[in-house]
Design a binder for these strands. Structure first.
Lengths: 230, 230
DNA sequence: GTCTATATCTTGATAGAC
DNA sequence: GTCTATCAAGATATAGAC
């Protein structure tokens, strides 16, 4: 699955639009994103980040009070972006015109997984930093992200429980199903990239179909299935 | 899913039996396992490791030529353990008395996933180090693990392709299915622990069932299903 | 094999001029 | 806001006695 030596595939260093601070602060964030995702928090130095941002290392402290705060900003940003997408996906799926009591959870789970996978395929570096470097933060600086993560988990569990109650899903254990579904989506950030023969929405659709099968929902269009690509 | 701040749950620091060097070299390896898994390679210092191993930092160099070599030993060990388990699982499933052309791939996929999940639940620290700290190694020291990882991936892909050919599996794309199945198993190392109300084999069985559903194999015993625990 | 002591370098962060 | 210069602490690794 790609270059197995690196933490993730060669991807453009991108942050969600609208939320990145302008000017130097934003360039520092981009530099941190790139270096933290590749070398980890402790593996990237203040000077490395400064060089990548095109500034002197001392200038950095005019924008962030410490190296840790750069990471905290990225981790928070990543968790906010994901949680916002999950929430919007849920709302859209729940309010859809075709939603009934018998298909609500199915559509919501598909929307949730699609959003989850899309986010990880769209911002792989941010996802890796938010997931794999959270532990480098102090409890205080990690708190906002931890809270968001718990809420995101709750969204998934709620949909699973709902589907189990309506009978849409045949699942023994909601937690284990959530862990499996979340795990397969999280990992996308590590292998997805422009070198793959897939578009983001192809992966998202396929993984949503995987999730539905996983919870016991039969495939909706068995005839439409494409041939294998790999 | 556990303490979301840390990289993994509170688990005993264990290495596979028989492969750990005796004496001080082994204690260094255990110390490295604990500290690398919690703080990452660059987040744990030589002195930290020495203290955890109960020796002076200089003594360490009588056993390993560099800090990087400690990590390399752990990463290699982790990949060898996993690959060995996958191979043995495949052989057992393939040679089983009930194996036929129509069920071979199904049994093999279940065995593969069970072994994968069991390994990650049995040695979570080792799995986290082997997976998440591989990038900190030079290309040379990472090479053995990278090679093993490619072989493990091939095992899974081969089973998927076989099941697609025999008609056991209804899968569009073997690579995406492999990525999903591998991802859900890899993540187990991050949340499994003694605080969870599951035994290792319960998780392994459930995840194997998830994988079979994911590739389109209908549940074998729908009546035997237990009630949800969470 | 294990220690004390130390060399050498890099780290995160600060002081102060412009 | 950005720089030069620098501090104090920490890093990896080595030398040499026992």
């Amino acid at each position: 699955m790609g270059d197995e030596k690196r933490r993730l595939a060669a991807v453009a260093v991108e942050l969600p639009e609208g939320v990145t601070p302008p000017g130097t602060a934003g360039r520092i964030l981009h530099a941190g994103l790139q270096l933290f995702s590749e070398y980890g928090f402790h593996g990237a130095s203040i000077r490395d980040i400064a060089v990548a941002a095109g500034i002197n290392s001392a200038t950095l402290y005019a924008h962030y009070p410490s190296k840790e705060h750069i990471l905290a900003a990225l981790v928070r940003l990543g968790h906010e972006e994901l949680h916002g997408r999950l929430q919007r996906a849920l709302v859209s799926a729940g309010d859809g015109p075709g939603a009934t009591a018998a298909t609500g959870a199915t559509a919501q789970l598909a929307a949730l997984v699609r959003a989850h996978v899309t986010a990880h395929a769209e911002y792989p570096l941010l996802a890796v930093v938010a997931n794999s470097e959270l532990h480098a933060l102090s409890a205080e600086l990690a708190a906002p992200a931890v809270a968001l993560r718990e809420q995101s988990t709750r969204l998934l569990l709620a949909v699973l429980h709902k589907g189990m109650e309506t009978g849409e899903f045949a699942v023994d254990d909601a937690f284990l199903a959530a862990a499996a579904i979340a795990g397969m989506g999280l990992r996308v950030a590590h292998w997805f990239g422009p070198h793959q023969p897939y578009r983001r929405d192809e992966v998202a659709d396929e993984f949503a179909a995987f999730a539905l099968r996983l919870v016991g929902v039969a495939a909706e269009k068995p005839a439409t299935r494409r041939r294998s690509r790999r």
